[in-house]
Nucleic acid binder design. Structure first.
Lengths: 238, 238
DNA sequence: CAGTTTCGGTCAGAAAGCGTACCAAACGCC
DNA sequence: GGCGTTTGGTACGCTTTCTGACCGAAACTG
């Protein structure tokens, strides 16, 4: 494989690193394909790799003691999996998996650890992403507590749309239902409303964003703050 | 003021620090009283101090773009305010304030920064609390999305109970309503149910936990995982 | 291309929770 | 001890969402 050039990388974090930090990581970065549902980090087991997504989407899902499952965060080429390693936790109660197939550059946890000790600036930078991701989780809590299914669906579609190329999102209602912690039938109804307004187009297993502006109106207060935090601490998403 | 002895400190984080780390911080720790509603960290403004709580409770509340407010985290002598400073963010969109009066040892943000650069072990340790707090936020998202008012009230009372001495919690229904993002009347009803079962006793502005075991049953799956994470990464809460 | 699986649309009945409002009891202050 | 304020109990109608189920359409499989 030819050596990795920083400017040829799509991942926003890797791209924003200083040249020195990037060069420290790059010999250990391994390009991998990400199939749908591939596990990026298993729950309650040591995390072996962190994945810097180049394309596709990853999802962090929390499972409660009684089996209830609910998404608490989402990331694409703006982020990475396994952020708990940056905080000194080798494992988490979460399940992190691929939600939209794509590709990534991965790094062994041990290589990451070594690099973090070698260069403080690398840690400082990556911790900013941890902060942004924590804010995203906090606003997921707000959305779950205070917004309707339609508003939450709009928020979620916007977050996906931010992280992929083009306007097509290959998602089933069943999948969305888990993400939003609602019934599948609830997703179907909300989808129909948005489609009826001409904001999205829905086909089997595919949602196309037609009018992003109006999608933001529907999401109203539930969207925007974590995104602003990303821009402030890390840089523009696109 | 007499010099601070580590063993005389109630805060679990300060207490668990290595002697060297503690001694680095202690000359700059200032004891302060915390009145109800005192602002520990203002939203969207630089954080000037971090507070290690000795008693009382602090609450982290997120505000959405449309003004919706909802609690995303709670801490007492198990934690500290201003954790975003550890992640390199000088401010957050959250409002952090005192929810149950008490006292704290506070540290100037600049002193914290200096100490973090001086001793890596201090940063490593405090970051573990950031991880635990993030998990708590994630499970707040789960609770808001999937549990009834009664279950969420039980969870919340348990989290408070974990962090105070005794079984009395000085809380109004109005306050609880904001914390849980429900109507005040909804809290009243849920409180009555728990009281009817003999699990708590409610008086004006005061809830007394009578039967913690059964409170855990009511909270069912919504309680426990963040608490286990605290125990695993930091130590026993009590 | 026939069989099987997955996905999405739909419905009736029920529950949870909300908006709003009113009133009484408890408390704090002079 | 009287007065104003805070807090809590209660009610009604309405919206949202759920439970649980059924069925047809689309996509995949061999």
């Amino acid at each position: 494989m030819s050596p990795l050039t920083q400017s040829a990388v799509y991942n926003r974090l890797l791209r924003s690193l200083s040249v020195e930090d990037f060069n420290l990581l790059s010999p250990n970065l391994e390009a991998v394909k990400l199939d749908l549902r591939f596990v990026l980090a298993p729950p309650n087991q040591p995390i072996k790799h962190v994945y810097f997504l180049e394309s596709g989407l990853g999802s962090v899902v929390a499972t409660a003691a009684d089996g209830t499952r609910l998404e608490v965060g989402i990331f694409g080429r703006d982020g990475m999996s396994g952020t708990s390693l940056l905080l000194g936790a080798d494992q988490t109660p979460y399940d992190t998996f691929v939600q939209l197939a794509g590709s990534a550059l991965r790094l062994k946890a041990t290589d990451l650890d070594r690099a973090l000790h070698e260069r403080a600036s690398l840690r400082t930078f990556l911790l900013k992403f941890v902060q942004v991701f924590a804010v995203q989780t906090a606003y997921t809590a707000v959305a779950n507590g205070s917004y309707t299914i339609e508003e939450r669906l709009a928020r979620w579609l916007l977050m996906c749309h931010d992280r992929v190329d083009g306007d097509d999102l290959a998602l089933t209602h069943d999948f969305l239902a888990i993400m939003l912690a609602v019934r599948r039938a609830g997703v179907t109804v909300a989808t129909q409303v948005l489609e009826g307004d001409g904001i999205i187009r829905a086909k089997r297993g595919l949602i196309t964003v037609l009018d992003r502006r109006r999608l933001e109106d529907v999401a109203s207060g539930s969207y925007g703050i974590p995104e602003a935090e990303y821009a402030r601490l890390i840089g523009p998403l696109n």
